[in-house]
Structures are given as C-alpha cells and as structure tokens.
Design a protein around this nucleic acid. Structure first.
Length: 842
RNA sequence: GCCCGGGUGGCGGAAUGGCAGACGCGAUGGACUCAAAAUCCAUUGUCCGAAAGGGCGUGCGGGUUCGAGUCCCGCCCCGGGCACCA
C-alpha cells in the first residue's frame, strides 16, 4: 500500500529521537506528580508477537497520555529471562542458555522499540543478571530467617516433560502441566516452600480495595478458597486410655457442624497417618489394596473413572463415636477425601453432602436428614424428577436434638459453641491455598543460596558471598538431572558456621520468584546495598496502572501480592505498602482460527511485516480501533484490510496537517464535488464546536479505556474536517482543528503526530499539554429532537438545545407527519424530554 | 454441576431507559484516468413499493414502562474460570 508519507524513515527518526533525548526518563526527584505505568515484563522469546504489540500499545499510550497530562511517568522495561525454553534449547543445540537468552532479548528489545513504545531503559532489569540474582538470594535469606521459607518433604507435582517439580498453581485442573501438557505425577521429595498461607487472610481481604477486573478478583478468591468451620475429635471406640479418657481420636474438619447429628460414618484419606491403627486385621487386605491403588493413580484417574466416587472405599473395621449423639459409626478409607486439606478426615453426612450421599448409596450406609428438604424433594426433587439425593440448600433443622427448629447459620454457631464448651473441638478456618513450592531441579534459574552441613543443617550462604552463581561449564544433557547436580565441584561447599565440608543446594527457584518483586526494583535499580531503597519505592509505588494478560490472574498476581506484603514485613519494603498494583487491566488475547495465537500453536502473524509497509502507527491504531481492549481479537482474512484502513486514515490526517507534497493528485485535486459555495461562518462555528466536542469525547474515552470509540471519534472528525478544509474553510479554524487532532492522536500514533507537529510548529507534540475542552463549546446549539406518536418515531426536528417544554410540544404538534400519524386524535398523554424527545400518546 | 463474561447488518463493533447499527472493513455505483492504482463523491439491516412511504428487526419466551439492545423473570447457545477442598 502506497502511503502519503515516508512511514519507515519518519518512524525510525522519532524512535531514535526519543531514545537519544531520554524523553521518557524520569527520576524520583521530579517535581511533577508521580505516575507508575507497568506492562508485565515478558519472557524473552524473540521478536515481539502480536500479543506483545497489543500489550505495549496500551502501555505506551498511557505513558504518553499521562505525561501530556503533566505527570512524571515511570515507564520501565525488563525481561523475565530465566526459564525452561533457554535450557531446552541448550540441550538441543548446545548453546549456553545465557547466550541464547541475550540474543532473544536483543531481538525483543529491537522490535518493541520499532513499535514506538518508549521506556526509561536506564532501569532495564534482566532476571538472569548477577545483580538481580544477588538480591533475589538476599530476599530468600530474609524470608528464611523470618521463617517464611522452609524445606519440607512433601508429595509434590512432578512433570516428566519438564523434568522438575511444579507449584500447585502450575498444574491444570485436568492434572497436566500448564507448560508442557504432560500428565503430572505425584512424588515424595524434599523441597523448598514459601509460606504464602500465612498471608491467606490478608491476600483475600486486600482484594476488596483493588481496582481490578472483578473476574480476576473472583479467581483469586476461589483459589485462596477460605472456608470457615470447625475441627473436632471423634474418639475411636475401644481405645480408652488408663484414665478412662480416649487414647485415640480421629480429628475431622467440617464447614457444616450443624449437620453433625446426621453423621452416619467417617472417612479418612488413604494417606492418613492413622489408617494403619484403624484398620483391623480382617480388613487389612482390602485397605492395603485401596491405598496402593490411590498412591499409584494420578489425580485425574482418581476423579475421572466413571461412576463418581461411589466405588473406591473400604471399611477399616474400626468405629468412632459421634460426640453429639454418643453413637458409634464406622470408619472408612476412601480417596474422595484428600490428605492435603483440613485434617484429611471427615465426618460423613450423606443427607446434606452429595459426595457422602453417593458413597453411602454405594456402601449401603444409612442416611439421617438434619435439614428439612423442600416439599416433594424425596419423591421427585432429584435429577429427571426422580427421588432427591442430598439436600444442600436452606432449611430448618430436624433430627438434631437441641438444634431442631433453628436455621442453618444459627445452628452452625450453636454446634460450634457446644464443641468448644465440651473441649472436643474448635472453630477453624481452612484454605484451599497451599504453601508455594519454589524449588526447581533445573539449571537456568536463580540458585537457592544455602548449604547443608552434616553438623549444622541448613545454613544460608553469608550475604557478602552472594550471589551464588551457577557455573558455566556444565553439560546440558537430556537426562532429567539438573546440570548443577552433575557438576564436579558446584555442590561441594564449606559450611559458613564450622568451615567443614557441606553440600550446596543445587535446586534453583521458580521463575515466578523473579517476577514477584521486579516492579519494586524498577523504582530504584541502582541502589548498591539493598534490592531497592524503601523511600524511593514509597515515592513510586503502588503501580498506578498494571497491564498484562489474563493468564496471570492467579499465579503471578497472587505471588506478587504475597511478596509485597512479605517484603514489607521483613523490613525491605515500606511497611505500609501492602498492595503492589492499584489498578489492573487485562487485555484480550489474539485468536486465529478459534485458538490463541501463539508460538506453540504455530499460527503467529509477525508484526514485522506491517512495520515496513503500513508502519507501526497504523498497526497500533488497528489494535486500539478493533474493539474494546479487554476483548479478544480475532485475526481473520479481513484484518489486513482493516489495518490498511487505519493507514488510510493516517494518510488523510497527514494531508490535512502537512499537505500533498508527495502526492499532488490527492485530496485537493478532485475539488468540490457538487460545486457548492465555500463554507461560511456558520460552518466554521460548527467545526469549532466539533473540535471541543472531540476533545471532550476523546479525553473521556481515554479515561474509560474506550480507545476504539476514541479512534472512531477522530475518524468522524476528519470526515467533517476534510471537506471543510478542501472547500476553503477558514484557515485559522482548520489549523486549530488539525493541531487539536494531532495532540489527541499523539499517544496513539506517536510518530505521525510528532512529525506533522514538528513540521507545523518546530517543537515536540509530546511535550505539549493535553488539550482542555471549552465547556461552552462542547454543548451543541442545535440538536435533533425526536417526535414519537405512541412510542414510534414519526418525525425528527432540529431545535435549539435550550428549547422549553412548551415550545418542544408545540413544535411537535406543528409537524405534518405527526398530525398524519395522530389522524385527528388528541394526545391523551404527552411525555416531553426537551430537547431530546417528545412522545405523544393518543 | 457451580461462578463469571457474552449473543446487535455480510464482518469487527457503536449506543447515561429516549433516533438501533456511530466508526471502520467489505460490497455496489459514480468522478478523475487511454487504462489501472491512489484519491474523492454516493449508496449499503431487512421486507413491501416505481416512488412517496410503510411493515419488521438487537438469541428465544414472558414482564415492567409513554418508551427496552439497555431493567426484571424463565429458557437456549457460545466463551472463560473453578470443580471430590468436606
């Protein structure tokens, strides 16, 4: 497509100008009010893809807009540069991950720059940089000292494809690895954890004050999964101690203590430590078989095998006593109870829990209702009008002695009070959230800076010896072993306490650790003796606008919130900084043929092919124009044409602003199509009003992230302005119109705006202030008033904006079309909303 | 199963309860041109009609209202998240 101006050289010129003049470099001492805009730092996978373009277009627009509004805008950039792809490439090609990663970073940086996105590059962070590693390790050790980091043996998620353990958050609901798609296995391994569960309540409560998409907040709430209930003991029958008190009891957790009178059996998880003790010799074989099967099978096998959970349970032969009734009930082992949640044991109430109901049906266990189901439930309340099963809804308590007649919330409170009075139980809050497993058996990550001494146990490497860096002379082999573990010397260390031989930790940290505090480092990446200076962090933080993909709704955003709180609590960050991201925006993804556009799907459209044809400005404009920013974008056969349409619009702006020097057969040539007279003063006044309405609209649309309508408003304006200018409209008005347009476009299409502005004024549009609409000119003089008869539009009248109600009704009645529609009838009712509408109802 | 989004022309999408379809893409016709490209002008929801004009129309069925794409109730479909968490 031939463009009206030399897109490539103009775009390059301004990209070089912004970089060499440090236009978007700011410091904490800047007198302007601070504003921090941040786009999630990317994993460097090579040249930018379309998703990046979309991301950085929004971010860059904000940086430029906020700057024009008079803020000192902090706009840093960095790279989440540790991670598996680099290591896998090393195994494949022998290239060292650092070499591989640095090359990818150079490519990504160049392509981001070629979009016209501007950053304070002095602040660039790379997570594999030794300085960054050092502070990562310092933070880890502060957490270790504060008890927030610990090592424990745990059944963990092992991904055979990635050859490493994963965090719970990285395992998808179907039991596969979010990265490789392999089926994740359970393994018992000694691993490092961060105590994120200490912050579960604060992480939940803090969501309330955040200006984040509701759906992201909901996802985090679900993930944290707080449930209130009670824990209490079920004494095992026949296991009284010498003092007559129970020597062995089974502790259960429930959110429904009110249903305890309906407990007809109890269940323990196959991994529960009391299983052996509870199992009587005659049930041993069955229980052992069940346990073995549970250990072998993966989570999905456990959950997907047909028939729900009816099967896979075995009686232990033991009985426990329900403290509410004194009745003894059987104890089962079943894998529908998970060891990792609550106490790993439950009281089963089939009448009010669907899982317990199914299990009870399969094993012939009794059902005692403790909540009155709605009428007819037992006859036809179930699926397909059959008999109802468990009733989990509201109702009145029945069969529950002293709880009878109460509603559920009251009964819950009474039952819990009773447990506490009796000394057999206590209020308890449980979370679905588990501690964060951060160790990875990989090379290309931040080493965990500890050694293990035979005499002194786990000892942190002293701070003055940090960073602990992984050696370069390792062999990358597809063995599944971390190259660090196989290195001849790396693991041999000396104990910092006694100087004796010690074993160095060879695991590295999850890369989500790196991304959990980089936004703090960005505030002050130069401080030599701390990860960041708390006062400088206080100046910039929290991030005023964070931008990223919805895929990070849980993982990164939850970890970063946890880190911010924990860093404040160990004294590294300001104590009052509890939330890192005040406002979050999650943009839609790019889809093609119904699936996400991504490298792994092989359906990438390279942005580069647009940059040297229609240019970065047109591509940016397309992303802004195509639809609401939060929506997904479908990349189709028509997309190129829409992008060209954006280029056409920019050509029109160029011709209006600069003229037709390069294309003499352009706009001016066709001349006035209808041969009408030149626009008069009234037309000029209309254009002036349009200018101020445009400022008003675009400013409002920017605030609301409604960029597609902002672009539409600019296009509409050009459609109005173009004939006015061509037909000899007042040059002063044209100039005001064009200048305003360039100011409003400056954040969206920065190169075109900068070049056209420079040619017109000799200075820099991005250093100008954002225009302010004159309220007197924003209101229109004449508006279209709709006249309806019985709710149907019958006429449209041009009326003064300040028309009175009486005048409006009179004008409506004076209309021939209205009279025809009324057909002689007198309006029985008149609704008038001057100057918009009059509705005559006969 | 539960919790969120969302269904508007051929397509992407606009519409504080008050003109449905802004803006753009595509399509059709025209001007300019030897011709094309580019540019400019016009038309473009649908049905009836030569036209003037009129009927219908925002997934489906009800409701509230002078007036509903918008609010309420009940469904259908699509997308996403969660899913033995006791």
């Amino acid at each position: 497509m031939a463009r009206a101006y030399d897109v490539v050289s103009i775009e390059r010129k301004w990209q070089e100008y912004w970089a060499s003049h440090g236009t978007y470099e700011v410091d904490a001492g800047d007198p302007r009010p601070p504003w921090y805009v941040l786009t999630m730092y990317p994993y460097p996978s090579g040249p930018a893809h379309m998703g990046h373009v979309r991301n950085y277009t929004f971010g860059d627009l904000l940086v430029r807009h906020r700057t024009m509004l008079g803020h000192a805008v902090l706009s840093p950039f960095g790279f989440d540069s540790f991670g598996l792809p680099a290591e896998n490439a090393a195994i494949r090609t022998g290239t060292h991950p650092r070499e591989f990663t640095d090359a990818r970073i150079a490519e990504l940086k160049a392509s981001i720059t070629s979009l016209g996105a501007v950053y304070d590059w002095r602040r660039e962070i790379r997570s594999h940089d030794p300085e960054y590693i050092r502070w990562n390790q310092v933070i880890f050790q502060r957490f270790l000292a504060a008890g927030l980091a610990y090592r424990a043996n745990a059944p963990v998620n092992w991904c055979p494809g990635c050859q490493t353990v994963l965090a719970n958050e990285q395992v998808l609901a179907d039991g596969t690895c979010e990265r490789s798609g392999d089926l994740v296995e359970k393994r018992d391994l000694e691993q490092w954890f961060l105590r994120i569960t200490d912050y579960a309540d604060e992480l939940l409560a803090g969501l309330g004050e955040l200006d984040w998409p509701e759906r992201v907040k909901t996802m985090q709430r679900n993930w944290i999964g707080r449930s209130e209930g009670a824990e209490f003991d079920l004494p095992v029958e026949g296991r009284d101690g010498s003092d007559g008190r129970p020597a062995l009891a089974l502790r259960v957790f429930t959110t429904r203590p009110d249903t305890a009178f309906g407990m007809t059996y109890a269940v323990v998880a196959p991994e529960h430590p009391l299983v052996d003790e509870l199992t009587t010799p005659d049930h041993r074989a069955e229980v052992d078989e069940l346990r073995e099967r549970a250990a072998r099978s993966s989570e999905i096998e456990r959950t997907s095998e047909g028939g729900g959970l009816a099967k896979r349970g075995a009686a232990t032969g033991s009985r426990v006593v329900n403290p509410f009734t004194g009745a003894a009930i059987p104890v089962y082992v079943a894998d529908y109870v998970l060891m990792g949640y609550g106490t790993g044991a439950i009281m089963a109430v089939p009448a009010e829990d669907t899982r317990d109901w199914d299990f009870a049906q399969a094993h012939g266990l009794p059902v005692v209702r403790t909540v009155q189901p709605p009428e007819g439930w037992d006859e036809h309340g179930g699926p397909d009008g059959g008999p109802g099963g468990a009733w989990t809804g509201d109702g009145t308590k029945i069969n529950s002695a002293w709880l009878d007649g109460l509603d559920i919330p009251t009964a819950k409170a009474r039952a819990t009070d009773w447990l506490e009075e009796q000394g057999v139980g206590t209020r308890m809050v449980n979370y679905r959230l588990r501690d964060w497993l951060i160790s990875r058996q990989r090379y290309w990550g931040c080493p965990i800076p500890v050694v293990t001494c035979p005499d002194h146990g786990i000892v942190p490497v002293p701070e003055d010896q940090l960073p602990v860096l992984a050696p370069d002379d390792v062999e990358f082999l597809p063995t599944g072993e971390s190259p660090l573990a196989a290195h001849p010397t790396f693991r041999h260390a000396t104990c910092p306490v006694c100087g004796g031989p010690a074993e160095r930790e060879t695991d590295t940290m999850d890369t989500f650790v790196d991304s959990s505090w980089y936004f703090l480092r960005f505030c002050d990446p130069w401080t030599p003796d701390a990860p960041f200076d708390p006062d400088t962090v206080r100046h910039w933080m929290p991030v005023d606008q964070y931008i990223g993909g919805i895929e990070h709704a849980i993982l990164h955003l939850l970890y970063a919130r946890f880190f911010t709180k924990a860093l404040a609590d160990v004294g590294l960050a300001p104590a009052d900084l509890r939330e890192p991201f005040a406002r979050l925006f999650t943009q839609g993804m790019i889809r093609m043929d119904g699936t996400k556009m991504s490298k792994s799907k092989g359906n990438l459209v390279a942005p580069s092919r647009y940059l040297d044809t229609v240019g970065a400005d047109a591509l940016r404009l397309f992303h802004l124009f195509v639809g609401p920013p939060a929506d997904d974008v479908d990349w189709t056969d028509q997309t190129d044409q829409v992008i060209e349409g954006c280029g056409r619009f920019l050509d029109r702006v160029w011709r209006l602003a600069v003229g037709d020097a390069d294309d003499r057969r352009g706009a001016g040539q066709a001349g006035r199509a209808d041969g009408s007279a030149a626009p008069d003063a009234e037309a000029a006044r209309a254009v002036r009003r349009a200018i101020h309405r445009l400022i008003d609209r675009v400013s409002g649309d920017y605030e609301r992230w409604s960029y597609n309508t902002a672009v539409a408003a600019c296009m509409e304006f050009v459609n109005l302005l173009q004939p006015f200018a061509r037909d000899g409209g007042d040059p002063e008005v044209v100039a005001e119109a064009v200048d305003t347009l360039l100011l409003l476009l400056a954040p969206m299409t920065p190169h075109l705006a900068a070049e056209a502005w420079e040619r017109r004024h000799g200075d820099h549009v991005h250093e100008r202030r954002w225009p302010v609409a004159d309220p007197a000119l924003v209101v229109q003089e004449q508006v279209t008033m709709v006249v309806q008869v019985a709710g149907k539009v019958r006429d449209r009248l041009e009326v003064a904006v300040d028309i009175s109600e009486d005048e409006a009704i009179a004008a409506a009645l004076a209309s021939d079309k209205v009279q025809a529609a009324l057909a002689g009838a007198t309006p029985a009712r008149v609704i008038s909303r001057p100057p918009r509408l009059v509705n005559l109802v006969p």
